[in-house]
C-alpha cells in the first residue's frame, strides 16, 4: 500500500556541459497526485524522460513501481503511461486506428483491446469522432485522445508532461475533470509537470524546481505556511528569487 511509485536517488542528467538536472532525490507514493512545478527549462521534462526510460541518467538511480529505469526499462515502460507536451498521435489515422496501433505496441490482444478502446472513447467524449482523422480534431479532443492512448494499457503511474499547454481554459478544466475521474476510479499515481500554479494547487504534494534543482517540496498548504505566503506563485518567488514566468538566465 505504501510502496513507492517513484524513487529517485541522486538522479541527474547532463547534456554536454549543460547540467539539465543536478541531483534529484524524490519519493512519490502510490496513488499520490504529485506536481512538479517550475518554469520552462527548469529540468521538468528531463526528469520525466529519465523516469520514463527515454533518457539514460548521467548519474544516480531511479526506480518506478520497483523497477530500475536502466536495468528494467521494459518493465518500467509497461507500468507507466506518458502523455507528452505535444501530441504523439498519427494525424493521418483516425482516433480508432491510433488506439488500435497503440494497443498492438503495448501487446494487448484484440479481444482485450477492442472493448477497452470502446470504453475509453466513450468516457473521453470521442465516440462520435472515433472514425475521423486526428488532424480534424480540436486541440482539446486531441489531448483527450492522447490521454486515452496513455491509459489504454492501464498503467499504474501516469506521467503528464505539461498536458494543458496550448489549450483554452474551458478545455483545460474538462481535461482536469477527466484526470480527476481516472484517479478516483483506479487509484492511479499521477506525476504532473506544469508551469501553471493553479494546476499544481490541487496536487497532494508539489516539488518546486528551478535550474535543475529542487528548491521546495511539500503539500501546497505546507509550502505556503513555511514560506509565510498565501500562494504557490509567491512560494516560487521566495525560494528562487525570481518569478515563475521568467525563465531566468541559463
Amino acid at each position: 500500500m505504501t510502496a513507492a511509485a517513484i524513487e529517485a536517488r541522486g538522479l541527474g542528467k547532463d547534456f554536454g556541459t549543460i547540467r539539465a538536472l543536478e541531483q534529484l532525490d524524490l519519493d512519490v507514493r502510490a496513488g499520490e497526485f504529485f506536481g512538479l512545478l517550475g518554469p520552462n527549462g527548469a529540468g521538468k521534462t528531463t526528469t520525466v524522460h529519465l523516469l520514463a526510460t527515454l533518457l539514460a541518467p548521467t548519474r544516480g538511480t531511479a526506480r518506478v513501481v520497483g523497477h530500475d529505469v536502466v536495468r528494467d526499462d521494459l518493465a518500467v515502460r509497461r507500468a507507466i503511461g506518458l502523455v507528452f507536451q505535444e501530441t504523439t498521435l498519427d494525424r493521418d489515422l483516425t482516433v480508432q486506428e491510433n488506439l488500435r496501433f497503440a494497443g498492438r505496441l503495448w501487446n494487448l490482444p484484440g479481444p482485450l483491446a477492442v472493448p477497452r478502446i470502446e470504453g475509453l472513447v466513450r468516457q473521453f467524449g470521442l465516440l462520435e469522432r472515433r472514425d475521423d482523422p486526428v488532424r480534424t480534431l480540436s486541440g482539446g479532443m486531441r489531448r483527450a485522445a492522447d490521454l486515452a492512448r496513455g491509459m489504454l494499457h492501464e498503467p499504474r503511474v501516469l506521467f503528464l508532461d505539461e498536458p494543458t499547454a496550448g489549450l483554452d481554459p474551458r478545455t483545460r478544466r474538462s481535461l482536469w475533470e477527466l484526470i480527476g475521474r481516472l484517479r478516483q476510479a483506479s487509484g492511479l499515481t499521477v506525476f504532473l509537470t506544469t508551469h501553471y500554479v493553479e494546476e499544481a494547487e490541487p496536487c497532494d504534494r508539489v516539488a518546486v524546481m528551478d535550474h535543475g534543482r529542487l528548491v521546495a517540496l511539500g503539500t501546497p498548504a505546507e509550502l505556503k505556511r513555511t514560506t509565510g505566503v498565501t500562494s504557490l506563485e509567491e512560494v516560487f518567488l521566495a525560494r528562487t528569487g525570481h518569478a515563475l514566468g521568467e525563465t531566468g538566465a541559463g
Binding site: 527515454l54 504523439t88 498521435l89 497503440a102 505496441l105 501487446n107
Partner: peptide, 14 residues
C-alpha cells in the same frame, strides 16, 4: 517530426 516515433519509443518494446 510528428511525434509518432515517441509513442513507439515509450511502448514496452526493444
Amino acid at each position: 517530426d510528428a511525434g509518432v516515433l515517441r509513442m513507439v519509443l515509450v511502448a514496452p518494446i526493444r
